[in-house]
Design a protein around this nucleic acid. Sequence first.
DNA 1: CTGAAAGCGCTAACAG
DNA 2: CTGTTAGCGCTTTCAG
Lengths: 339, 339
Amino acid sequence: MGKGKVDIRDVAALAGVSVGSASRVINGVENVSPETRDKVERAIAILDYRPNHTAQALRSRSSKTIGCLFTDVTNPLYARLFRSLEERLRKDGYMLLLANGLNDAQRETETLALFARRGMDGVIAAPGNETDAQVLAALQALAMPVVVLDRDIAAPGCDALLFDHAAGMKAAMAELFAQGHQRIALALWRASSRPVRRRIEGYRAAYKAAGLRAPDMLVQAASATASVFADVDALLKRADRPTAIVAQGTYTLGSTLRAIEANGLRVPQDISVVTIGDSDFARDHSPSISLLNVDAQRVAEGIAMLLHSRMTDPGQPGRSERVPLQFTDRGSIGPAPRP
Amino acid sequence: MGKGKVDIRDVAALAGVSVGSASRVINGVENVSPETRDKVERAIAILDYRPNHTAQALRSRSSKTIGCLFTDVTNPLYARLFRSLEERLRKDGYMLLLANGLNDAQRETETLALFARRGMDGVIAAPGNETDAQVLAALQALAMPVVVLDRDIAAPGCDALLFDHAAGMKAAMAELFAQGHQRIALALWRASSRPVRRRIEGYRAAYKAAGLRAPDMLVQAASATASVFADVDALLKRADRPTAIVAQGTYTLGSTLRAIEANGLRVPQDISVVTIGDSDFARDHSPSISLLNVDAQRVAEGIAMLLHSRMTDPGQPGRSERVPLQFTDRGSIGPAPRP
DNA sequence: CTGAAAGCGCTAACAG
DNA sequence: CTGTTAGCGCTTTCAG
């Protein structure tokens, strides 16, 4: 038979009950007699009835949909997060609307407004720009629960899930210090985004905590996809070249490794390497590159918790949840070479 | 003022017109006098009115939403496609619901049913399994336009957008033949998915078309993320080792390059390399690896076209659109070495 | 060109 | 526990 032609009234009629009772059964409400439930369920089965989600959403004021605004799904981190989020939220009956912000404030503002118009039950946002007034205003204007993802945005009533970059960085540095490394380079890109800022902070804090002076070995690529080959190459040609290097992101890591190779150095005998972020390329490398990254499932769990908590108590003050960065040793680090 | 509190009746009241007229203005219907339009627009601006999308969807039977069922967004190809699709469909006012199939037939079936219940205006599906009866049935059962993405699924009334793997493969092979290569290896993974099948077909067809016998140089990894190091290594140690190799996917390419390196061979002097798929790692490699891949924008354009075409004429027979694989020479191929 | 009225399909009061 | 009824906010006939 045709699609969507059968509605709740047909079900009620066939079951010989009122639409109200049919609705109760469909929604698993408590106060329904077993017989009624049975009759309705039978009718549903016979008619192959599927509730119209749009009508449910309009009437119940709940779309069972979460809007995700990520900078770019093409970034493996967001792709992994999305997958975990979908997995987690699907359990609660939610589906996800996904939109890329692409570092375009206007686009992000529009997207947030659309989420509002579409009555999302919640919004998860990682805008590219943390300070754009329009974006901040759009975020504030949202009436539904909002979780800001790893951005330093203090919007009253907004919850945030933050990655603990600094602590992760310090942990990785501690590993390297323990192996006798003192000249550790850090390669990432030039941006004022929270991840970059926090990692540099952690890097410096680690030196300070170790009672050492941070060397002048910070390399910042022009963009996330730019090469740091030249800068790292120059670093490696110095007399006091680094004995270890921490590289954030696939491109940075790739060009770092090429520079190492070009200088005839071996990993980890001559230089230790740690990467931050996604593991695809890093894991497949030889040797496999030790890694600092975030557990997507844990992030999803944290977001689900924040969302749920605010749904049940909308008035509570903004919370922020922290997820650690995990260090995985995979054989690309070794003792610092003797001078 | 509060969110969503102002509705179309408030607008109509303030504008001094009927709800019907307000609606006409909102929807840009033709037959509206300039004055009415003006009054309504003014009222909208004053009240900061935003139409409730859910109510619009229920009444107009159009959700302005497209459901995407991809195998896994973590796959860079799908991530890129999603981005292009969002970009393209956003122009027409659509937002995208994204779900990962994860090669789980039941999950895919459920997702398609949910798309139906939620009244998607269209569905774009790339199921992991092309032959699962449940999935096929769920696909057929959809009342809205469906575009199957690069899968050999012949569902009556379903349109398909297919990548022309075989032709692309032949083009790449032609490049290699032209440089004198005769022993060309192909490394990919073991799967019966359309992409893998078609590429092997193209590989064999290219040899046939060149009047050559295909050598026994087909390497199939256990999975897309498994290493082909051992197999390629063995191949390279043969007296009649390949002078060129085509590798599909980042992992396959990575382990192929390592095997080449381990055998002391240089690219492209000793061996030429072509990769298929995403370019992230390949582009950053030294030398940059020549590539065979699909233009995501073109794919998005094709899908939008198929969707639009079927929306305007639902009765038309199933169509399939082909998108070529483009070959990009980037310096990892050279003349076949003299024996 | 505009207003009035009738729902889209469903849930949530509210009586009973 | 169940039936009845009133809408959710909007679009779309249908008259005028």
